[in-house]
Write a protein that binds this DNA or RNA. Structure first.
Length: 429
RNA sequence: GGAGAGGUGGCUGAGUGGUCGAAAGCAGCGGUUUGCUAAACCGUCGUAGGGGCAAUAACCUCUACCGAGGGUUCGAAUCCCUCCCUCUCCGCCA
């Protein structure tokens, strides 16, 4: 959410910045509604001031044992006027909120202008292997190895779910532990295990609601939703809070499953486990001082890339162009891992700086006693996948597959599996 | 699931219809004093929105906020209704 007074004072500038991300229309009738609302609010407040004065008169008269019919009569009349106006303001409030909640964040000036085609590669690392055989896609190789099964998942649940067997399940668990260990022991994140179910207020705080409800799973007859990402519980963990400046930056990491309805993506990534209704992820979230947030975005992205480096997985990092940015983000790096079986780079992490877009919604502030009389200010929030475990699983299977149909486990992961290789039949060796 | 007790500022906690944005204490901030640590004393101390005003400074002023939302009333922290949350006991359960 953008700052209301900033928006008022810099309307043309905001309009311009929204234009470059293809959201110029999102402001709608903002100015008109805002003006009407302010006029009505001022009128109500004036009436309330008069009513309060009259109430004081009533109180005074009654204490003195005098008659108070006249001010009571006047006050009652004003009360009626206020009631009428309040209905009007309520409607205008709702209209304004609807507009404001639907306006995406403004792109940072360093973000390339354009569409997805204008995303710019900022880094490339790891060596893409030369295969002396045709590498298989994971949706062929993994079921062949007996570590991944779609038919039984379809039976017990439905499409876009998978069952992991044997070494497949262990690999997923090993990746979870490996990622959490690296981030907590070496990158300075604090591990959290949050609820996998959140309420509407939390989803509003991070920006999924009200606009993207159709992407989520909601539990029937409740205000509960399955988390689409740990970003939601982690970011809202500090919601409605004023943080002491000495505690910043706060860096959190969590493992959670993530649930997404994938409405509107029916034709895409239908094979394999690239796009599932449930996948596991280790998430990184930071709360930082505004002046540091872009440095923090760089280091957060490095923290995510480090996992790929350690797993000998080739990748490239791209900065998303304005038109490809997510709703809440001011700047995003996508990390894309190389998948030789699928023969393409595939997003495995998305690292974003939301500036104050989320903290304004979720009310996450900090106080600096040295500045502005210690008035509280909004923190900047960031997050990124560190990493999506399912896609990392795919990357390991596809990149480290051997001609004989086995998969070599990367060195860094061996202590977690106590094995070097996945054999046909889904066993470890 | 059943019974009961509660939710008030950064914290503790008073307040059952008007003079309450809210006592008191603690913490914080500014100062005075004592040779240090520490203490004592004085002062100050919520948030948000609008207007004065051109200003994201100061000041003045109005409005709102005592878990959330409705209602009663000239007037609500206080009375009524609904919901949420916390605690205690019982039941059930991993």
């Amino acid at each position: 959410m953008l700052d209301l007074s900033f928006l008022r004072k810099n309307f043309d500038h905001v309009q311009e910045r929204l234009q470059v991300r293809g959201a110029a229309a999102s402001l709608g009738r903002f100015q008109e509604v805002d003006q009407q609302r302010r006029a009505a609010v001022t009128e109500i407040e004036n009436l309330k001031a008069r009513r309060n004065a009259l109430s004081a008169e009533v109180a005074k008269a009654k204490r003195a044992g005098e008659d108070a019919d006249e001010p009571m009569q006047k006050s009652r009349e004003i009360g009626r006027q206020i009631k009428n106006l309040e209905d009007n303001v309520k409607a205008l409030d709702e209209a304004l909120a609807e507009i404001l909640h639907g306006v995406p964040n403004l792109p940072h000036e360093s973000v390339p202008v354009g569409s997805e085609a204008d995303n710019e590669e900022t880094r490339r690392a790891g060596k893409q292997r030369d295969f002396d055989f045709k590498p298989q896609a994971h949706w062929d190789l993994a079921p062949e190895l007996g570590i991944l099964d779609f038919e039984q998942a379809a039976k017990i649940t439905g499409a876009r779910f998978a069952v992991y067997w044997n070494a497949g399940a262990k690999l997923e668990r090993a990746l979870m532990n490996f990622m959490l260990d690296v981030h907590t022991r070496e990158h300075g994140y604090t591990e959290v295990l949050p609820p996998f179910v959140v309420n509407s207020a939390s989803l509003f705080g991070t920006g999924q609601l009200p606009k993207f409800a159709e992407d989520l799973f909601k539990l029937e007859n409740t205000d509960y939703w399955l988390v689409p990402t740990a970003e939601v519980p982690l970011t809202n963990l500090l919601g409605d809070n004023t943080i002491d400046i000495n505690r910043l930056p706060i860096k959190l990491t969590a493992f959670t499953p993530c649930f997404r309805s994938e409405a509107g993506s029916y034709g895409r990534d239908v094979r394999g486990i690239i796009r599932q209704h449930q996948f596991q992820k280790v998430e990184l979230v930071k709360f930082v001082l505004p002046e540091n947030s872009y440095d923090e975005l760089e280091s957060l992205t490095r923290d995510a890339e480090d996992i790929l480096d350690r797993l000998d997985l080739p990748y490239r990092t791209v900065v998303l162009a304005t038109g490809d940015l997510g709703f809440s983000s001011a700047k995003t790096y996508d990390i894309e891992v190389w998948l030789p079986g699928m023969n393409e780079f595939k997003e495995i992490s998305s690292c974003s700086n939301f500036e104050s877009f989320q903290s304004r919604r979720a009310k996450i502030r900090y106080r600096d006693p040295a500045v502005k009389k210690g008035k509280s200010q909004l923190v900047h929030t960031l997050n990124g996948s560190g990493l999506a475990i399912g896609r990392t699983w795919v990357a390991i299977i596809e990149n480290h597959q051997q001609k004989d149909g086995t998969v070599v486990i990367p060195q860094a992961l061996r202590p977690y599996l106590d094995a070097e290789r996945i054999l046909p039949g889904g066993n470890l060796e």
